[in-house]
Simulated scan of single mutants.
Amino acid sequence: MAAHGMFAATDLEPQFVDRGIKLSSVQVWRLVTQTPERLSLRVLSALCDIFECTPAELIATRAENAAPRKTSTADAEVVDLATSVRPKRARIRPE
C-alpha cells in the first residue's frame, strides 16, 4: 500500500468503490490489518487491479509435509462394540 501512496485503510475504500465493490470501513480495516480467512474473487481481482499485481504476489503460500498418521499397534486390545458396550434398554413406566 505504501508503494502506491496509501498509508491508511481508509485510503483503500474509494479504490474499491471505483471498481463497484462496497465494503464497510471495518471490512477494509480488517482486510488491511488481519489475514482474511475468506476472500471473494471480486475483492481479490480489485486488489490486483489497484496494486497492479498478480494474486501470487498478494497471497503467500507455503507447502508443508503432513505428518504421517499413526496406525494401531499389534499390542492394542480390540474391543467388539457390538457385544461389550451396549446401553441398557430404556423402560417407560406409566405414572
Rank of each mutant, 00 (worst) to 15 (best):
Q27R: 09
R30K: 09
L39N: 03
S40Q: 06
A76P: 11
L23I: 14
V26M: 05
Q34G: 02
A60I: 10
L58W: 00
L23Y: 03
L12T: 12
S72H: 11
T73F: 07
E57R: 14
L31T: 08
L31V: 07
C53Y: 12
F16T: 06
R30V: 05
L44A: 05
W29V: 00
A56V: 08
A63G: 09
F51D: 02
A63N: 07
T71G: 12
F51T: 01
E52F: 03
L31E: 01
S24W: 00
D75K: 15
N65Y: 09
S24P: 10
Q34L: 06
L44W: 00
Q27S: 15
L23M: 15
T71R: 05
K22N: 13
L39W: 05
A67C: 07
T35R: 07
V26W: 06
D75C: 15
T54Y: 04
L23P: 01
R38L: 06
I59G: 09
E13N: 11
A66H: 02
A46K: 01
S45Q: 05
F16W: 09
D49P: 01
G20D: 03
R38Q: 09
V32G: 07
E64T: 14
A74H: 12
V28S: 01
S72D: 06
F51E: 01
S45V: 02
Q34W: 02
R62A: 05
R62M: 12
K22P: 04
E64G: 09
I50H: 05
A63P: 06
G20T: 07
T54S: 09
A66F: 02
I21V: 14
T54A: 05
L47W: 03
A46T: 09
A76E: 13
A67F: 08
R69G: 13
V28H: 02
T33C: 12
D18L: 11
Q34T: 10
A46S: 14
F16I: 07
V17I: 15
L39M: 12
S45R: 01
P68I: 02
D18V: 10
V43D: 03
F51Y: 11
R62C: 13
S72T: 13
R19H: 11
V17Q: 14
S24N: 13
T61S: 11
A63Y: 01
A66L: 12
T73L: 11
R62D: 07
S40G: 14
F51V: 00
T61D: 08
L39Y: 03
V17P: 14
T54N: 07
I59Q: 04
E52Y: 04
T73H: 10
V17N: 13
L23K: 10
I59R: 07
A66K: 12
R62N: 11
A74W: 10
Q15I: 06
